[in-house]
Design a protein around this nucleic acid. Structure first.
Ligand SMILES: [Mn+2]
Ligand SMILES: [Mn+2]
Ligand SMILES: [Mn+2]
Ligand SMILES: [Mn+2]
Lengths: 231, 231
DNA sequence: GATGATACTTTGAGGATTCAAAGTGCCGTC
DNA sequence: GACGGCACTTTGAATCCTCAAAGTATCATC
């Protein structure tokens, strides 16, 4: 069985591949995002390549193999289902569950995982709006528009927050942008590096484009829509 | 923070102290019950002594210090609350939760633990009837009588099973002796090494004294009793 | 095309945990 | 009181993961 360390490496590699969409994830990014020294990253990634989970190109970077991707998605599934469970069942705050899941993701058996999945009625997204891979390792990798890209003066719904920092998540909550919340972007000012929007209380708020990029949105659901009946 | 390994050692040491009530737990028992070689046990126990969790007397055995006992009870609390939670909330079988809890006990934060405790309404016992230490490290260490000690021909209630093996627990269930079940011992035959009892279906069953020793019982509750009102 | 900056790799080492195998102390038996 | 047996300890080595520091490749710039 893969160690927690290996699971963390492949999971992080997957997340960086998604975030950067690069041909290869540079070693520096791996090291930085895992909080280890570059030398350690090199050593471990070589071991990962040895065991067939990654393809390593010296002085260029790494990429997950098919097997590595499968493992990464399994870990991610455990992580996100645990987050959802902790929020919905035990009432933890959505800003604090990431940290908890970081440990739990390595010790949840398939049996417990399946129970949680059923208990929560097979959720598609975790409390931060991150998509949950299904039991077969399929995941919705669609990139939603953010407050930086969406059309001005039209209604949107927050679907995902691309940040796990408790302070940031609490800030997001304070400005009314938790997943499910309505927004309408009023204006963008490239020079001021600011995006101004109205939340569901019609309150006007401005954030930097760096922050705006972390708030993903989608078209609001049709009211005529049948809820959750799309086999 | 103590590693999982250290937590397993002190927990096991506590369990052996309770089971054997010896002055010192012999190294051989430690090694056997943890499934490691005697040499490893010696090395680790010396390290435990170094860090103040145990008192080690070469060629005699070990004993937990006050600090070691505190840690052991904290781990035991996590273990048993997790077992209760898995059975009551996620519907796992009581025979399979021990194994799951063996891993989860090392990664449950104080916050999650407290939520589970509240969610379950601060249970006093886990699914096997094992007492759950409270948040301050207090535990009911009372030794209940077993099918080997209790009076003949009078009603008793099963309160605890002193074994965690799935097959044994399933067997116990099959003969109707899960915690809460009624029993009445009909006879004991020292020579035949057998104990014969009637379960709540009035069915007569015989088991060896070794098995009988694992079934702890208590006097049935007074029907006039006020349920759960003893501050 | 030499110079440096920067990113990456290699090397040497240490901590934690484990084992196999060899060594040692203790205890009862004769 | 010597002998054996058994429980326990010591030793040497391995695995996994990590770091600090030294070495090296690559790429932009002059
Ligand atoms: Mn993790
Ligand atoms: Mn999440
Ligand atoms: Mn354990
Ligand atoms: Mn138990």
């Amino acid at each position: 069985m893969p160690s927690s360390t290996v699971e963390n490496y492949v999971k992080q590699m997957y997340l960086l591949e998604q975030e950067l969409q690069p041909d290869l994830v540079p070693m520096g990014r791996m090291a930085a995002s895992l909080g280890i020294t570059p030398g350690t990253a090199t050593t471990m990634v070589k071991a990962l390549a040895e065991s067939g989970l990654a393809d390593y190109e010296p002085r260029s970077g790494v990429r997950l193999t098919e097997g590595g991707r499968r493992l990464a998605l399994h870990v991610l599934r455990r992580h996100r289902l645990v987050e959802a469970f902790l929020v919905k069942t035990l009432g933890l705050d959505w800003s604090e569950v990431h940290e908890e899941a970081e440990q739990l993701e390595h010790v949840i058996s398939d049996k417990v995982l399946e129970r949680i999945d059923v208990y929560l009625n097979r959720p598609r997204r975790d409390p931060h709006g991150d998509p949950i891979p299904d039991g077969r390792g399929r995941i919705d990798e669609a990139r939603e528009p953010t407050l930086n890209d969406c059309s001005l003066s039209s209604p949107w719904v927050v679907v995902r927050i691309h940040d796990q920092e408790p302070e940031f998540l609490q800030f997001v909550e304070r400005i009314g942008l938790t997943p499910g919340g309505r927004v309408e972007v009023c204006s963008r000012d490239r020079i001021a590096d600011a995006v101004t929007f109205r939340n569901h209380h019609a309150k006007e708020i401005s954030v930097s484009t760096a922050v705006a990029a972390k708030i993903a949105v989608a078209a609001p659901p049709n009211d005529v829509d049948t809820q959750g009946g799309t086999k």
